[in-house]
Nucleic acid binder design. Structure first.
Lengths: 271, 271
DNA sequence: GCGGGTCTATAACATAGGTTAAGGCTTATG
DNA sequence: CATAAGCCTTAACCTATGTTATAGACCCGC
């Protein structure tokens, strides 16, 4: 996992993630570091947020894993997404009265938080950063949409293959994969709830993947031996993850905008 | 459908929708109207956006239905969401290079569009509107997450019931439901792709709902006879739709912020 | 007013994935 | 050190949903 010299601020996964989209200026980096300063720790299996409760501040995962999940009144549960280091919890959904989902830690976790109102400051003062945050939010939505495609149209085997490749890709960006090996601190029950399958069928499916030599699992360590084949099986197309792809569209948007920003100052909102 | 006197600007569904969240000032309404001025029409079964192509401007649905969908290389398809009047296409995903999904019209459609860069203007000049847009985006994500729960954990009958109630609710906000009756311009094939089911099973499921008298269908007109029971079956909880619920959290956020906005002007971005 | 397309409807049959049950392994605990 | 609590694993059996096939209704262009 990420760690720095004791007492120092370790590398920020959020910064790493945003950097894959946009080269941040020193100024922006400083502001970001400021946002992430108030850090708290929580043990594994703790609720950071509970369906129906009010949102507090905006949270940024700095280390550890969590899940975002929704439950039906009768107890059935769906994991919406895995929350990884660098992920932001409730940037915009903070605008809701109460949460329509829960967030629960899977491992001990380190979370930074800042008051929701800061978002408005970002909008006004750091438009590039605001766009990077919006990009991150859009990416999260894209991940969920892709998962919807999985649950709706992929078979169990395809789903599992797809998920494993996705997690590997997402973790790579924040330097949490080494030679196809990463930590997957997730029980088969949670996998089942994430893939819309039964726990037994998850087991069967993992067995098939292991038997065909595509992956290896010992404990919470998983090794991906053949990403290519796994991607084929899952019909994985990294498009939706919006990883590094040439000069950012945003850069040019701002170039075009810089000009218009001076001659035409934005109108003042009426109180 | 929405219509106004010929030649006049008809009521804006986007304004209606946002108003359910936030009372807009005259100024904000004017700006919104300006954003929606450039209107174009498209026939049914037209692609407004194709998976893999570049995004153009930001689009606002003013009338008609569309679907947002993703396809697998082998042709299987998942409808991610229904795009209804008042919905915004690609506010933030515009920040991506290319689209990871397609948008296709189901009916003739009226769409307003404005250049992506305007979003930055909104951020800077109309923070309340920016928040309302963010609310709308977060709501859309919540809808997708709820759909994920449906596909993962609800049975076919429950899914259909849930979808029907959801659509009725969403359409109500923009005045497109009368006495439980609304237009559903959707083939069973599209329903199948939306619910992750086969077309045959959609047919069976609709039949059950019709036989139990909960709904009536003639052509594209659907009547919901018993929302209560339908909601029960689908375990429908309108929480995720974030409909009117008391004094908006946002209002107070801005009250709190108004004070700090003056004494502490937002820092200038470095060019 | 006729052929062809599209959509709904249903029946008969097939299967992916669910359920139940049971054993074993590991770690925690008194 | 014995018991319990989680978790993984597998087998046997079951069912919700998929597949294939066929027919009829409707609409459209010529």
């Amino acid at each position: 996992m990420n760690s720095g010299p004791a007492g120092t601020m370790p590398e920020s996964p959020l910064r790493l993630k945003l950097s894959s989209y946009l080269k941040l200026t020193d100024d922006e980096q400083a502001f970001l570091a400021e946002l992430e300063r108030a850090v708290s720790r929580h043990p594994a299996r703790t609720d950071l947020l509970v369906q129906g409760e009010r949102y507090g501040s905006v949270r940024v995962m700095r280390g550890g894993w969590a899940i975002r999940h929704k439950a039906l009144p009768d107890g059935r549960r769906q994991v919406i997404n895995f929350v990884l280091p660098g992920d932001i919890i409730g940037i915009y959904s903070n605008l809701f009265e109460t949460a329509d989902h829960s967030i629960t830690t899977l491992t001990p976790v380190e979370v930074a938080s800042f008051p929701s109102e800061k978002i408005l400051d970002i909008f006004r003062g750091y438009p590039r950063l605001a766009a990077a945050f919006a990009w991150s939010a859009a990416r999260e939505e894209a991940i969920i949409a892709e998962r919807l495609l999985s649950l709706g149209r992929r078979t169990a085997l395809e789903r599992m293959a797809h998920l494993i490749v996705e997690l590997q890709r997402r973790l790579s960006v924040i330097n949490m994969v080494e030679n196809g090996l990463f930590t997957l601190p997730v029980t088969q029950e949670i996998l089942a709830d994430a893939m819309g399958l039964s726990i037994v069928h998850i087991n069967r499916t993992l067995r098939r993947l292991r038997d065909s030599g595509l992956i290896e699992i010992n404990g919470q360590r998983i090794t991906v031996n053949n990403v290519g084949e796994l991607s084929n099986i899952g019909q994985f197309d990294d498009h939706y993850l919006q990883l590094v792809r040439g000069p950012s569209r945003l850069e040019s948007a701002f170039k075009g905008n810089k000009a218009s920003a001076k001659p035409k100052p934005p109108p003042q909102p009426k109180p």
